[in-house]
């Protein structure tokens, strides 16, 4: 059996030991260093969509922005998890999310970064498309009851009733993963509201 190699990197001026193959995020968490995330889940494949875990790395005198949940914890890497530039990025990301999802989790994070009221307006979809529900249902439960549809600003999450009606009632495991609370509030009953393919298609329906 191949022995797991150890690597050493520097996070926030602290020397951190990590197993080879770990990401920066995993290495940081093992060392008790906090990096904010919303779409990350240790059991799921990396997704890299919320971008909150963006950190600064430097190598050979060059600084680069990368997402900690994806980038490998390479030997000798120098990482900064906080800087004025990173704060600026996280602040704006949270302000953008808050415009469509004024949920408690987002509000809490936003307050931490000093975002009071978003300067933007958006339809209150209460969903930031972190994909935790979709990925959990597909990867862990392999039930495929929920999925993404559309692209660009029209992208959203929908349930597939043929499957959902048989598996969801007894599962509901994705509810607790949802950072915006959209799932529990709207899917307690039978009605999925805008979480249906029909609703998505109705925005493109044939006209009189």
């Amino acid at each position: 059996m191949k022995k797991v190699q150890k690597v050493t990197l520097t996070i926030n001026k602290r020397e951190v030991r990590a197993k080879e193959g770990m990401t920066i995020l995993e290495a940081a968490r093992d060392a008790g260093i906090h990096i904010p995330t919303l779409c990350y889940h240790e059991k799921l494949a990396t997704y890299g969509a919320c971008r909150l875990c963006t950190v600064e790395i430097s190598r050979n005198g060059r600084t680069q922005l990368v997402t900690a949940c994806v980038y490998p914890a390479d030997d000798g890497l120098v990482v900064k998890t906080d800087s004025p530039r990173l704060t600026k990025i996280r602040k704006m990301l949270l302000e953008l999310m808050l415009a469509s999802s004024p949920a408690k989790t987002i509000q809490g994070l936003a307050q931490q970064y000093g975002v009071a009221k978003p300067r933007f307006e958006a339809k209150k979809t209460n969903c930031i498309l972190c994909g935790l529900c979709v990925r959990y249902c597909n990867e862990i439960k392999q039930a495929n009851a929920i999925g993404f549809v559309g692209r660009g600003t029209e992208r959203r999450v929908v349930f597939f009733p043929e499957i959902a009606s048989t598996v969801c009632a007894s599962c509901r495991e994705c509810f607790s993963l949802c950072p915006t609370g959209k799932l529990p509030s709207e899917t307690d009953g039978v009605c999925f509201d805008d979480l249906t393919l029909e609703d998505f298609l109705s925005t493109k329906q044939a006209k009189v």
Binding site: I146, V149, L197
Partner: peptide, 20 residues
């Protein structure tokens, strides 16, 4: 291939339509 993956593709590309 699970239905949800097919629908993701079918609603992602402009060439496809789920409406007649």
């Amino acid at each position: 291939i699970p239905t949800n993956q097919i629908y993701h593709i079918a609603t992602f590309y402009k060439a496809f339509s789920l409406i007649p």
